[in-house]
């Protein structure tokens, strides 16, 4: 196993949990504690990335630039990263100002079959002399051959690495192993894995990804993140240690950051509720959970049935409007069956 590097997405994926209300103080404190821990990069900002503070997915407490500037002031050794989804932000309004404010690295994310819309952003970031990482979201929705095709596009645009995002926490061990091995074998750039914990496999799947040749683990401290949460970085570092692999990260620093900075802002422990398990089973984007629960209540249907139907319809991130559609249909069926 190669020595992995770690991306810490706590302040970005965790933003979903607190409806994008992470304060500047939290960002500053967290970055101070992680800086120099051996973590490669801290990703900061709205859960949906640059330019995503909107009525559609929720407003941030602070602007992108306020969050980036706070993190910039606190990070000296660990790199400062941002996340961006094409279609949410633009170069002029969002990406250029973020780079001007000192972002070192940008993860450009996209649904796993749509990599060609990342070209402009990867090339722009690379052209500015910064590091661009391609992120294939909801990777479980495409066969490995298609994922390779999309990853190769990102590689050709200049991405320094490609990260597979298990956005629905829907991976089995075999899926991770086969996909990662295949990509590692056919790509010239490093492969990373970003896990979600719907089926309680985030740490295990991350470990399998490393065994299969991945060299980047993207996770969060305390597993703080959308839906059932993410791969808990402290746990994966400890697990590597038990396996005799030096992760190059100071475990206590991660534990302290989780305990002292995150714990106070977590409204409940990060856990796997029944709806998250069904959403993982159905392979539906983790971030849908609050919307599904609301619609289930409003229309008097079972949230688990909504998730299963969303899975059958193959919805992707950003299709929150379909949730109500499904809830209405299920409610109609119920009435007919009575």
């Amino acid at each position: 196993m190669n020595k992995p590097i770690f991306f810490d997405s706590t302040l970005r994926d965790g933003s979903h949990v607190v409806r994008h209300q992470i304060s500047i103080e939290t960002i500053t404190e967290y970055c101070k504690m992680i800086d120099g821990s051996g973590v490669y990069a801290v990703i900061v900002g709205h859960g949906n990335g640059l330019g995503a503070s909107t009525l559609q997915v929720g407003r941030s407490l602070h602007s992108d630039l306020e969050m980036i500037s706070a993190a910039r002031a606190a990070l000296h050794e660990t790199k400062l990263g941002a996340f961006m989804l094409p279609g949410f932000g633009t170069i002029k309004d969002d990406l250029a100002p973020a780079l001007d404010a000192g972002v070192d690295l940008v993860c450009v994310g996209v649904h796993c079959t749509e990599a060609d819309v990342t070209q402009q952003y990867i090339e722009y970031v690379t052209g500015r002399g910064k590091e661009a990482i391609g992120v294939l979201m909801m990777y479980h929705r495409a066969p490995k051959e298609r994922l390779l095709e999309e990853a190769k596009k990102m590689q050709s645009y200049g991405a320094r690495a490609v990260i597979l995002m298990d956005s629905a926490g829907s991976s089995t061990v075999d899926m991770v192993r086969q996909t990662v091995e295949y990509l590692v074998r056919h790509l010239q750039i490093p492969v990373g894995f970003h896990a979600h914990n719907n089926l309680s496999m985030a740490v295990a799947n991350s470990f399998v990804a490393l065994e299969s040749g991945a060299t980047i683990i993207d996770g969060t401290t305390r597993g703080f993140g959308a839906g059932a949460g993410n791969c808990q970085l402290e746990a994966v570092v400890a697990l590597l240690q038990k396996n005799g692999i030096d992760a190059g990260v100071e475990l206590y620093k991660l534990l302290d950051a989780g305990e002292k900075v995150l714990k106070p802002i977590m409204t409940k422990p990060q856990g796997i509720d029944p709806v998250s398990i069904v959403s993982g089973l159905a392979g539906v984007f983790s971030g849908f959970a609050p919307h599904v629960k609301r619609a289930a209540e409003e229309f008097g249907v079972d949230p688990r049935d909504i998730f299963m139907e969303l899975g059958r319809r193959n919805v992707v991130a950003g299709q929150e409007d379909i949730i109500v559609d499904v809830a209405v249909e299920l409610a109609k069926r119920q009435t007919q069956n009575v």
């Binding site: 749509e114 919805v315 992707v316 299709q319 409007d321």
Partner: peptide, 23 residues
């Protein structure tokens, strides 16, 4: 103003759908 564009690969393909919000 702000524009969000979502490419949706779902099958069968969705119709073009626009939502406008104003505060």
């Amino acid at each position: 103003a702000k524009a969000l564009i979502i490419l949706n690969p779902a099958e069968p393909p969705i119709r073009m759908h626009n939502t406008m919000y104003a505060e």
